[in-house]
Simulated assay, not measured.
Amino acid sequence: MSMFASHARALVVLLALVALASGCSGPSTAAGPGPWREGVVTSVPPELARINDLLADLAERLQPGLVYVRVQRATPPRDEPAREEPGEPRRSTGSGFVIDSSGLIVTNAHVVESAGQIQVRLADGRRFPATVVGRDGRVDLALLKIEGASRLTVLPLGDSNKLRVGELVLALGNPFGLEQSVSFGIVSRKGAPLTVAAPGFDFIQTDAAINPGNSGGPLVNLSGEVVGVNSMAAVNGSIGFAIPSTLVKMLLPQLASKGRVDWGWLGVAIAEVTEDDLGRLKLREPKGVLVRSVMPGEPADKGGVRADDVILGIDGTRLESPRDLQRVVSSTPVGKKVRVVLLREGQETELEVTIGLYQEREAPPGEAPRRGPRPAEPPRETPPNEAPK
């Protein structure tokens, strides 16, 4: 474990030390004619001083890898109303970070959506035009490239699977255009985000402040590793979510080589198996994933999957919930034949299904599409408490 991580344990007593420090600082003494009292220089408790130095040194080391992304749009993003001046360019800002010395930068897809021109400003003030190498709106991830930049600070990607609830993290970004900002918090939860994003993948929830402009910035652990990409926050900013670094690593090769992510697809609406379903489906216990409906002509239909089948596993991977099925299917290569084990009227059956290509559908009339993480399917195909896949 690194020096940073080992020091993190000391933060358990942080509040007590702060109280001790303030209680031991002593009274101020007047100095000079000004209408204030000068503080008396006192020693800071060693544990508190080490924590203070740890966080300040870490932020100082990471900030050179943070970039400020400015976008000029000829048209507004899909979830924003058009302005009265249709010919006037629209500008927005976001964050990003360098992942390779060749000039590759990670940010959010919604930051560069409908971009006409993109400018990246480095921490030292240098500015470069950027191009979009790849973009995936389903996860809200984009890969940019700048040319001719030297002396770039690369931020390493860590393993978000090892991240634990309660661990300390820093969120870096440019909220409201305030450049090189750092906020501090903990990992509050690992699970589904507020909106449906990459199907089945756990996002990182944190109380580190994530505000407009933070989008695309890194969420970093105390070892200085990027464990997430800041993506969205609740309206009041009290809850933020980040794309886990393990998912980012999985998608970056496709974004770099193809400019997009090819997600796997079955074409079924699914739900959890409940106690109420046992008798009707001739099941002994609630397990697996219930198929509510099958979309005609889609891979599941072609493979013989029917409504009211209960899928137990795919290619040997056991499925406990709809999110398990979504995660396994979406991350399976398009065109691969998989073994689907299911229960049909209480009898176990095995089918071979060829994974299809997910294609983003248009939203129903009268419903505005949402930016960034969006529903995996149109809401009309998603009854309450069910998830399409």
Rank of each mutant, 00 (worst) to 15 (best):
N211W: 12
A209C: 01
G224H: 08
V261Y: 01
I243M: 04
S215L: 08
G158W: 09
G267R: 00
I239H: 10
D276Y: 11
V187R: 14
R284P: 02
V273L: 02
F203N: 09
L252H: 10
N161I: 04
L194Y: 13
I270H: 00
N174F: 04
G191P: 15
F184M: 07
S215F: 13
G200E: 09
I270L: 01
E275R: 10
V273T: 08
R189G: 08
G191V: 09
V227C: 09
R164T: 04
V229R: 02
E275I: 00
I239Q: 15
A208K: 05
A233V: 14
Q180A: 13
S181W: 08
I270S: 00
G166D: 10
S257H: 12
S257P: 02
A171V: 11
S223E: 07
V227D: 11
N211C: 06
T195W: 04
I243S: 05
A269P: 12
S181A: 12
V227Q: 07
V235I: 14
A198R: 10
V235W: 12
P286W: 01
S257R: 08
P253I: 14
M250I: 05
L283C: 04
N236V: 12
S183Y: 13
L170M: 14
L252N: 12
N174S: 07
L219H: 05
N214A: 08
R292A: 00
G166A: 06
E167N: 15
L251T: 11
A269G: 14
F201K: 03
I210C: 00
V289F: 00
L247Q: 15
P199S: 15
R164I: 07
A171S: 14
I204N: 03
V268W: 00
K258I: 14
L222N: 05
A192E: 06
V196G: 12
P199Y: 13
A208W: 01
G216H: 08
E272Y: 00
L163S: 10
W265D: 06
P175T: 10
I239R: 13
M232L: 13
L168H: 12
E285T: 00
V261H: 00
G213W: 05
I239V: 15
A208Y: 05
L252G: 06
D262E: 15
A192F: 03
A256P: 06
V273H: 02
G217P: 11
G264V: 09
A197R: 02
S215C: 05
P244C: 03
Q180I: 03
F241S: 11
L255N: 10
V182I: 13
I186E: 01
E225L: 08
V165S: 03
P244F: 03
L194N: 14
L170S: 15
R189F: 09
E167T: 11
F203I: 03
R284A: 10
L178Y: 09
F176N: 11
G217T: 07
V196R: 14
E167K: 08
R164K: 14
D207L: 12
L219V: 12
E272P: 01
N221C: 06
S231M: 13
N236M: 03
S188N: 11
G185P: 01
D262Y: 14
A197I: 04
E167P: 11
D207P: 10
V261K: 00
A271L: 05
N236S: 11
G191A: 14
T274V: 00
S238I: 05
L222T: 05
F201T: 09
G217Y: 07
A269Y: 02
T206Y: 02
E275T: 04
L278Q: 08
K282T: 03
